[in-house]
Computed example of a mutant assay.
Amino acid sequence: MAKTSTITLSSILTNHKRQVGATWLMVIIENVLMALLPLFIGYSIDSLMTKSDAQQTHDVYVLAGLLTGLIAVSIVRRLYDTRIYGGIRIEIGLQTHAQLAQHPVATRNARLDMSRELVDFLEDELPPLLTAAIQLSVSIIILANFNQWLGVSAVAAGCIMLLIYSAFHQHFIRLNAALNTQMERQVKVLTLMPLGALRVHLEKLNSREIHLSDTEAYVYGLIFLVLFGFVITNLLLTTQVTDPSAGELFSIVTYSLEFVEAAILLPITLQTFSRLSEISQRLNVS
């Protein structure tokens, strides 16, 4: 890994462009294939209902090929990810230890665990974020292809959700800072303080986690209200589609639900990003 004075998501990505780029490419291919499934299922439904035997089997074979490709890419990516990100965790752990050599053991212990969260995000939570982004984009494009107002309602719902999250971003950072500060005190509490101090420490940890969870609940509640309005709106807008076939109705409903499923992933991932922003600041304090 190239030497760098900071430990952040961007520095990790810069120093491992090829490795991370390869796994991102596989994530994109995997999710584009997955996002296309409802469309090709819809084609297959229409073919089975209206076309000749030869045309029916052709569409089914295309769908089978799509599924086979999806399975193959998914397996290869997971085998690759485990090895690549495992090596990155080792390098980041060593760099964290070197940069915090003058800090107490309690601080180094907590921040070494925190540094792993940066790599965990890249391996475990960034792919779902890419999944959500691809599903949202594909859903919007395909819905707009059926009726422009279906696409407009999806774009409007997405913008409102981002505005809701941005209003809470700094609050999430402050709550995570309080939680991380308390976690850094744990080794000191265990080694130097009486048993009663441990109870106080655990109660403080619990209190900070409750505040964080409560804020997440409020954000999710607001976002679910937006998504509820989106689903109802799209159901009403479906009546504007001219003579829809069974396959088209299936695709419209499925892509509307996929939009909702992908949108639910966003606040979870973005809240983690807020936490990592605070961790990055903490790791780079000399």
Results as ranks from 00 to 15, higher is better:
2 A>G: 13
5 S>M: 12
6 T>E: 15
7 I>A: 11
17 K>V: 13
18 R>S: 15
21 G>P: 13
24 W>V: 15
25 L>K: 11
27 V>L: 12
32 V>C: 13
32 V>H: 11
35 A>I: 10
37 L>K: 13
41 I>K: 11
42 G>N: 10
45 I>G: 11
47 S>L: 07
56 Q>K: 15
58 H>L: 15
61 Y>T: 09
67 L>F: 12
75 I>D: 09
85 Y>H: 11
88 I>A: 09
90 I>Q: 06
97 H>A: 06
100 L>A: 03
100 L>G: 00
101 A>F: 01
102 Q>E: 07
105 V>W: 03
112 L>E: 02
114 M>V: 00
114 M>R: 07
115 S>Y: 00
120 D>L: 08
129 L>P: 08
130 L>D: 06
132 A>R: 03
133 A>Y: 07
134 I>H: 07
134 I>N: 06
136 L>K: 05
139 S>A: 15
140 I>E: 06
149 W>G: 03
150 L>E: 07
156 A>H: 05
159 C>N: 05
159 C>L: 15
164 I>F: 10
169 H>W: 10
169 H>V: 04
172 F>Y: 10
172 F>Q: 02
173 I>K: 15
174 R>W: 04
176 N>Q: 10
176 N>C: 08
179 L>D: 09
182 Q>E: 11
191 T>A: 09
193 M>R: 12
194 P>D: 10
197 A>G: 08
197 A>C: 09
203 E>W: 10
207 S>C: 07
208 R>Y: 12
208 R>K: 08
215 T>Y: 01
216 E>K: 04
217 A>H: 04
219 V>P: 00
222 L>F: 03
225 L>S: 08
227 L>S: 00
227 L>F: 02
231 V>W: 00
232 I>G: 01
236 L>T: 04
238 T>C: 06
240 Q>F: 05
241 V>A: 05
243 D>W: 04
251 S>Y: 01
254 T>E: 03
256 S>D: 03
257 L>S: 05
258 E>Q: 11
260 V>H: 03
262 A>D: 00
262 A>V: 01
265 L>I: 01
265 L>G: 01
265 L>H: 03
266 L>A: 02
267 P>E: 00
268 I>A: 03
272 T>G: 04
276 L>M: 06
277 S>C: 05
280 S>M: 04
281 Q>S: 09
281 Q>W: 02
286 S>D: 04
